[in-house]
Simulated assay, not measured.
Amino acid sequence: MTAADELRDRVGEKIRFRGADSVTQNDIRRKLEVFTFSCPLHDDEAAAKSHGYLGVVAPVTMTPLWGLPPYWAPGQPSPYLADGQEMTGNITDTLALPFSRSVNVSSEWQYHTPLYLGDRLHGTTTIISVEQKRTRVGTGIFLQYESEYLKDSGELVALNRNTVFNYDASTPRHEPGTSARTQQGDRGPRPLQVQDTDIRVDWTTPLEFDDVEVGAEVRGPALALTYQRIVMNIAADRMFSGIHHSAAAAHAAGLPDIIFNTRGLETLFETGLRRWMGLGGRLVHLGPFKMSASIHPGDVVQARWTVTGKHAQAGAEAVDLQFGVFAGDRQAVQGIATITLDGKSNANQSSVGEGGFP
């Protein structure tokens, strides 16, 4: 029986996990400083309470951080072997994957109960499907799984459906030292000079449902990516796949350089949305979204979205969005999302879209 067959035999199996750490203000600050972003909901207890929360609330796109188990625990042997299997900070670390490389290709999130300082997470991941395919980057399997994140109290925090492509790369398309990026050395290319620090936001003026127009197009701030910024971001996520910090690992995977990770793309979108929707809005559904192109050091990225609909749903005023993340003129991500604009009344209730994925 092959490793792929063994994975197929595990379809439907629930794999339990428990996060290593509780939610802290330090975790939130370290993540948001990468995006030069601050918001009263995430650092001001009085402001958060005035908008219906119990206290400082975490960005919803940080949820998976607190579901990660420790990389090492007392009594265990050292996992840091020079020639050992690399740990990535993903549930797939616990699976015997048949191929040597893995990359995220699509994701979808439903967000329910807010996360507060001191909360601890646990949950289950269920393997949904295993499909073998040959693609332009190599032969491998598309592994789809669903994860459920719960507080110790039993409250449902979030549901995630994710698809990973696990593969062996074809002949590398980019040899070390040949790309424009790698020729610049460890410091990498210099991104375009853009002012991407926290732009002035009037947090006292909420976005009203009646003011949202279907068809309106909105752009978040630009984010200039350097090697340092990309590595700082994965450090804040505790997700250390080599393709996000090692040029050699990226080349071996057929990539021209290290790439910005999925968690960074999600936070880029959320922080841009927050500036637009104000303190009363909530991101309740993100995705499905797909990554169609990689983002590298030297790129300047921006989230852009279009309002596609407005409706009442589960007692909430909901706004549907179609969004993309662009590196210059190149679209790297495309997907959909839903926000609600009555965050004060629903901050401590389950979000719209109850239940699991269709």
Rank of each mutant, 00 (worst) to 15 (best):
F165E: 04
G177M: 03
Q193R: 14
D119F: 00
A224K: 08
F209I: 10
L225A: 11
V137T: 13
T205E: 15
V201W: 07
R190S: 15
Q132F: 00
G215R: 00
V218K: 03
D202A: 06
T124D: 12
T226A: 11
G118D: 09
D196C: 06
L207M: 10
S153E: 10
S129F: 01
Y227L: 12
P172C: 11
G220F: 03
T135C: 06
T197F: 13
V214H: 02
T139N: 09
A222K: 15
H112N: 14
Q184R: 13
V157G: 01
H174Q: 05
T178K: 07
Q228S: 15
R134F: 01
G154P: 01
T163K: 02
Q228N: 14
I141A: 07
P114H: 03
P189L: 14
Y167F: 15
E155K: 08
I128F: 06
T135S: 12
P189R: 12
T125V: 10
E155Y: 02
T204Q: 13
E208C: 04
Q195T: 10
D198E: 14
A169M: 06
V201F: 09
V157N: 01
S129Q: 02
L159P: 01
G215N: 01
T182V: 13
T124G: 08
T197W: 11
H174P: 04
Y167G: 04
R120F: 07
I199F: 10
G220Y: 05
R200C: 11
P176Q: 07
Q193D: 14
L156P: 04
K151E: 02
F165M: 09
A216C: 04
N166L: 06
R187E: 15
E155F: 01
L192A: 15
G215E: 04
A222D: 07
W203D: 03
R200H: 11
E146K: 07
F165A: 07
R190Q: 15
